[in-house]
Amino acid sequence: MDPVSPPTRAGAVTGARPGRTAVTKQKLFDAALRLVGERGAASVTVEEIAAEAGVAKGTVYYNFASKDALVDALLRHGVELLAGRLRVAEQDSGTEAATASLVDGMLGFFAEYPAFGQLLVSELWRTPGQWHGTLSLLRDDIVSIIRGQVQRLADEGRLPGGVEVGTASAALFGTLLVIALDWQVFQPERSLAEVRESVLLLVRGLRPG
């Protein structure tokens, strides 16, 4: 998996050497992402993150106030990366191209960061826990981007009668997330193009007429 660059605002240390601090934070982010994606945030300890990253336990607290701060920063940064991929669709003038771009962005992101997809699923739809509030806000950010594209479809009469834009947007987000994870876990031999076309066929099939 390609490294996830840590957000510069999280856990910044005054007087620290920028290059060394960035590398250390990168190790902590990667380690936390692997562990939290596999087991969920609540069950992972600071000691385990430090061991996975190959650093001392104190290094975690040097860069972040706590494990919670590290996980919170990881969640926020991951969603910022995903949002950036999805906003590319806003540049397409046609709804067909915009929908395809949206699907490409979502599937491509989770193909690149499968552990983050596992993290979202494990924490977003579980019994409300410590990061539920943060994840709810982040989910709203993503769904609002998707909603903009679904609204374009609705404006052109391309949604079935009676289907609300908000419901369709949340459904598309959940569908893309689950399909991306199913692809990575159970059908890794399929190409991105194959999965993308299957999703687009599904979306087109829901249109009236």
Rank of each mutant, 00 (worst) to 15 (best):
A42N: 09
S43E: 12
S43K: 08
V44P: 05
V44M: 01
V44L: 01
V44G: 03
E47F: 05
E47C: 01
G54R: 09
V55D: 10
T59E: 06
T59L: 03
V60F: 04
Y62S: 13
Y62V: 11
Y62N: 09
N63S: 10
F64T: 04
A65V: 09
S66Q: 10
K67G: 02
K67W: 06
D68H: 13
D68A: 14
D68S: 13
A69N: 00
L70P: 14
V71H: 01
A73D: 00
A73C: 06
L74N: 03
L75N: 13
R76C: 09
R76E: 13
G78S: 13
G78W: 08
V79Q: 07
V79H: 12
V79Y: 12
E80C: 04
L81T: 06
L82F: 04
A83M: 04
G84N: 07
R85G: 04
R85V: 02
L86F: 05
L86K: 04
V88Y: 05
A89N: 12
A89G: 13
E90F: 14
E90R: 15
Q91S: 15
S93L: 15
T95A: 13
T95S: 14
E96N: 12
A97Q: 15
A97H: 12
A98E: 15
A98G: 15
T99K: 09
T99V: 15
